[in-house]
Computed example of a mutant assay.
Amino acid sequence: MRFADRLFTPRGKRHAGGGLAMMAVRASDGSRRRQSLGAEIAARGSAVGFDPTRDILQKVFAMFDHRKEHRRRAYLGATITFNERSSVVDCLVRNLSEGGARLEMAHPISLPTEFEVTIPRRGEYWRARQAWRDSLALGVTFVPSDSGTDVSIESARRIKQLQSERDALAKRLAEMSEPAI
């Protein structure tokens, strides 16, 4: 028996070609009704590019998704920084919402409970807290900043560069204003 068959078959009943497996379906008027998987596949089977297992699993998992905000699928390169921005880990943002994200890393790594997530391509930066974790994937919730002093990594680097340029100019100005003896 396939995973999808076990998932949809009512308890104690044998799967009989999709006739017994049921799922909730939302109609165009917004009402919900129960429909057998066989009827769902028959109704949508003529659609071009229809993959019954994938499409039906997406519907079922959406029923169990109790997030406050809708998560949009994404494929964005990001960085996780911690230890006062001295440690950096590359990751992928796989889905994103206003309140959180799902991140995937190439290798399992130990991370602190709170850290910073930056998406350089979009110029976005968040303070994040781990919500759940498995070996390579990580769910985070974005933490509102307590103070208005949070600065993105790019801004911090630029500030540091400008401060060093200012110090170099001040030193040069001091050298120029010294009287020649």
Score class of each variant (00 low, 15 high):
Val60Gly: 00
Phe61Ala: 02
Met63Pro: 00
Phe64Gly: 02
Asp65Ile: 08
Arg67Lys: 14
Glu69Trp: 12
His70Ile: 08
His70Pro: 01
His70Arg: 09
Arg73Trp: 01
Ala74Val: 06
Ala74Met: 14
Tyr75Leu: 14
Leu76Met: 12
Thr79Ile: 13
Thr81Gln: 12
Asn83Gly: 11
Glu84Arg: 14
Glu84Gln: 14
Arg85Gly: 10
Arg85Leu: 15
Ser86Asn: 13
Ser87Ile: 12
Val88His: 11
Val88Cys: 09
Val93Gly: 04
Arg94Tyr: 07
Arg94Phe: 00
Arg94Val: 01
Leu96Met: 15
Leu96Pro: 08
Glu98Arg: 15
Ala101Ser: 08
Met105Tyr: 11
Ala106Arg: 02
Ala106Pro: 02
His107Ile: 12
Pro108Cys: 14
Ile109Arg: 04
Ser110Tyr: 10
Leu111Asp: 00
Pro112Val: 11
Glu116Ala: 14
Thr118Ala: 15
Thr118Lys: 10
Thr118Ser: 15
Pro120His: 06
Pro120Asp: 09
Gly123Arg: 06
Trp126Lys: 02
Trp126Asn: 00
Arg127Asp: 03
Ala128Ile: 04
Ala128Tyr: 00
Ala128Glu: 04
Arg129Leu: 11
Ala131Lys: 06
Ala131Arg: 13
Arg133Ile: 14
Ser135Gly: 10
Leu138Ala: 10
Leu138Gln: 03
Gly139Gln: 03
Val140Trp: 05
Thr141His: 07
Phe142Ala: 08
Phe142Met: 03
Ser145Leu: 00
Ser147Leu: 06
Ser147Tyr: 07
Gly148Arg: 03
Gly148Leu: 09
Thr149Leu: 02
Thr149Asn: 00
Thr149Arg: 00
Asp150Glu: 09
Asp150Met: 07
Val151Gly: 08
Val151His: 11
Arg157Met: 00
Arg157Phe: 03
Ile159Cys: 03
Ile159Ala: 11
